[in-house]
Design a protein around this nucleic acid. Structure first.
Length: 569
RNA sequence: UGGGGUGUAGCCAAGUUGGCAAGGCAACGGGUUUUGGUCCCGUCAUUCGUGGGUUCGAGUCCUACCACCCCAGCCA
């Protein structure tokens, strides 16, 4: 069995955000001659999460909407944190989300030689200098938020001396941290970023792509704007924390002055989700401290975790579309994400039966050894999804929760003397229960009405409940994993100084053995379905073993079960 | 108490040159239903962080204040 997701379609937009307004304005006034070129620039220092999905959908979505292009560029200027494993996973995740960078996969490290040449130019025109101050001294000289900084004693070296020193930095004549290249801007600038920012540092670390070819590495602020310019990017869209960096972005491009149609930076608010940590530092901590099974643990907010859990690319794209793009810091309700998966899965997931918490149901008047076969549709509203045959016998499993010995009036399912429908099979009436020495129900007895074959009554009598069921003799034993939120509190990131690990939900994961209908023995990894009334499940991508299904619960149907239980008590 | 940003419903979020405050999620009520699901129908901002001002008319303009976020990495 297989069900796959289509590639990123052109879903309708909810409302127009400020970035689209800006692009429209540029298209009006003729800037870039109508060209729209964006980029998604992750640092390969971790796996992508749902927050990145927002940026991916924005950047690739903008390009698609305006018939433009979007590059995938790895911002790999800090060799000590970056790894090939991360670039591989990032590429896989972007593709899985349904986006295509075509032949435009770049690395900032592709530009190291060019960047170095730009740095020499800056030195030549007297706009950059080599500083001998230590990191601590530079911090002291920088001043504070309210006091201006002081110039470094090395600030006025001649371009010739700076050039010589910078070349020797590259040649490896100095130790790590001994010297840096700094932009010569303004140590009294009210914008801290502009107080002679570091452009290059000496760092002997193995780079995942350039190996040991370099011992000096360019900093983000120098690299990013130039990479954008080199690639012909028009709209460089990043998150709010870079607002202060925009002045430097402009300074570098303008003082080099070689990019007549240069890119400009625009910022939007990053995603915050209730119950969810989206800080890479914390996510990596969950992985390295083995608080989760890995980056793709189904409880993780990573793209790979969500994929394994059974979220579909379309549902994630829809979510990103619905949350909108603005500059206001916000905290999106997890319920919206849930709604998006449910909406997609409701239309696309086949309906099958599985019993998670089984109790035996014996039909007293059903002949022993007899087997009925019912042809059951995979989807009640979509005939094109076809059907499968499900065997029915005298002894079945039903959900333990679907029976109550002393049931309140509002309980619609099975209870002594009450009649319910076994889905697509027969009406049955409970005649009694059998218990063990401790008084636990071991078996429920009932009789069936042969006249109700298929689940319809000819005399027009109605039943309030419809139960899912599985024949004990034909059932496929399976492992089902029920996941809850990893964090039991609304916004674990909100508590600034608290250790977020204290907020982990101890009940975030539970494994149960279940009984499924026979057709589920043949599912493929990643196949999603809805177990009638129990929620949406996805056959585990990673732990898939043919014939021995393992399912992760993607989403519950709704919270109504809790409410029903509450009303009944 | 430096600079840069942001405040529209419980949560997101549209709001054009000032002219009756979109939409989605959540919630609540009703109908359909062989999933207590889905679907359908209805309700949900006399008010836009606050106070002044301009105007026939202000979420939009002016003004003063308040709250929150970001910046003192040789991280990105």
């Amino acid at each position: 069995m297989s069900n796959t997701n289509e590639a990123a379609g052109g879903e309708a937009r909810i409302g127009k955000d400020f970035i689209r307004t800006i692009i429209d304005a540029h298209n009006q006034d003729g800037r870039y001659a109508g060209r729209v070129h964006t980029r998604f620039p992750p640092e390969p220092n971790g796996y992508l999460h749902i927050g990145h999905a927002k940026s991916i959908c924005l950047n690739f979505g903008l390009a698609k909407e305006y018939n433009g292009k979007c590059n995938l560029r790895f911002d790999d200027t800090n060799p000590s944190k970056e790894e090939q494993e991360y670039v591989d996973s990032i590429q896989e995740d972007v593709r899985w989300l349904g986006f295509d960078w075509e032949d435009r996969r770049f690395f900032a490290s592709d530009y190291f030689e060019k960047l170095y040449a730009f740095a020499e130019q800056l030195i030549t025109i007297g706009k950059a200098y080599v500083d001998d101050l230590s990191a601590e001294q530079i911090r002291e000289y920088r001043g504070t938020l309210t006091e201006a900084g002081r110039n470094s004693p090395h600030r006025d070296r001649s371009p010739e001396e700076n050039l010589d020193l910078f070349r020797r930095m590259r040649a490896g004549e100095f130790a790590d941290g001994e010297r840096v290249l700094r932009a010569k801007i303004d140590m009294a600038s009210p914008n801290m970023i502009m107080r002679d920012p570091t452009l290059y540092r000496i760092k002997r670390a193995h780079h995942h792509r350039t190996g040991d070819a370099w011992c000096i590495y360019p900093m983000y602020d120098f690299t990013h704007c130039l990479s954008d310019a080199i690639e012909g990017v028009t709209h460089s869209v990043c998150t709010l924390e870079f607002e202060n960096n925009r002045e430097l972005y402009d300074w570098v491009l303008d003082t080099l002055g070689q990019f007549p149609e240069r890119p400009y930076q625009y910022e939007f608010a990053r995603l915050n989700l209730t119950y969810t940590v989206l800080s890479k530092r914390k996510l990596i901590q969950l992985v390295t401290e083995k608080l989760v099974s890995g980056w793709d643990d189904p409880r993780m907010p990573t793209i790979s975790g969500m994929r394994r859990r059974g979220y579909t690319p379309a549902s994630l794209r829809d979510f990103c579309e619905r949350i909108g793009v603005s500059k206001a810091n916000s905290l999106v309700d997890f319920a919206l994400l849930e709604h998006c998966v449910r909406e997609d899965l409701n239309a696309t997931a086949p309906r099958v039966m599985g019993v998670l918490n089984p109790v035996k149901l014996v039909i007293e008047n059903y002949p022993e050894g007899q087997v009925d076969e019912f042809d059951m549709p995979f989807h009640p509203e979509d005939e094109s999804m076809g059907s499968r045959v499900v065997p029915f016998a005298r002894e079945l499993y039903i959900e333990r929760d679907d029976f109550m010995e002393e049931a309140p009036k509002k309980f619609f399912r099975l209870a002594p003397g009450r009649e319910v429908r076994l889905r697509y099979a027969y009406y049955v009436t409970c005649t009694g229960v059998e218990k063990d020495a401790e008084g636990n129900i071991t078996e429920i007895r009932c009789t069936y009405d042969p006249e109700t074959k298929g689940g319809w009554s000819k005399d027009g009598r109605k039943v309030k409940g419809t139960l899912h069921w599985v024949s004990t003799a034909h059932a496929v034993p399976a492992e089902v994993r029920l996941y809850d939120k990893l964090f039991g509190v609304e916004n674990p990131a909100g508590e600034k100084d608290a250790d977020f690990r204290d907020l982990l939900n101890p009940d975030s994961f539970q494994t149960v053995s279940a009984f499924l209908e026979p057709c589920l023995a043949t599912v493929e990894p990643g196949w999603s379905c809805q177990f009638e009334r129990l929620g949406y499940f996805c056959s585990d991508v990673r732990d898939h073993v043919p014939g021995k299904p393992v399912f992760n619960r993607t989403a519950t149907l709704r919270d109504t079960w809790a409410k029903i239980a509450q009303k009944q008590s």
